[in-house]
Amino acid sequence: MTPVDKLLDAIATACRVLTGLSLVILTVIFGWLVFGRYVLNATPTWVEQAALLLVMTIAFIGAAVGVHENAHLSVSVFRGLVPAPVRTAFVIVTDLAMAGFGGLMLVYGAKLTAFKWGSMIPLIQLPEGLRSLPLTIGGGLILLFSLAHLTRLALRRDLRRDTIE
């Protein structure tokens, strides 16, 4: 493991902690919502909007970790049918496409965030721009992880592994 690999793994771990916490918090605030409605007779009106932000975080940051772990659903039949050099080309093009898409997520996500920062999400009074922030950060991470994979491939040290327990 080079220091760079260690750094990438550390980033992925931080993301896992963030998304895991988001899931637990999400569950707890819904418990609070029902408790508020029935026991306190005061429905906490912020839960809905806060929950949407948490789900965005789980989705986009979690998706980036999925890229790091190579865990996304893909169709591998055709890769298996072609000769090895073509397969390598497929892998490279895939990584380039992912990196490009991640880059676009980063750039246009940032633009959206800036565009919407001025208006507020009703009922929680946080900037609307927060909605596109997880996509922006997730895009940046996808760019990073895809480029890292390409570099490893070029150095013939593909360390990316599927970590499904």
Binding site: R37, N41, A42, T43, T45, E48, Q49, P122, L123, Q125
Partner: peptide
């Protein structure tokens, strides 16, 4: 609906505003 004015309205009438 999701708007602080609407939930404020119900709250001032003594009700329990429930965005949904």
């Amino acid at each position: 609906m999701n708007n602080d004015l609407y939930s404020g309205m119900i709250a001032e009438l003594g009700g329990n505003p429930s965005p949904m």
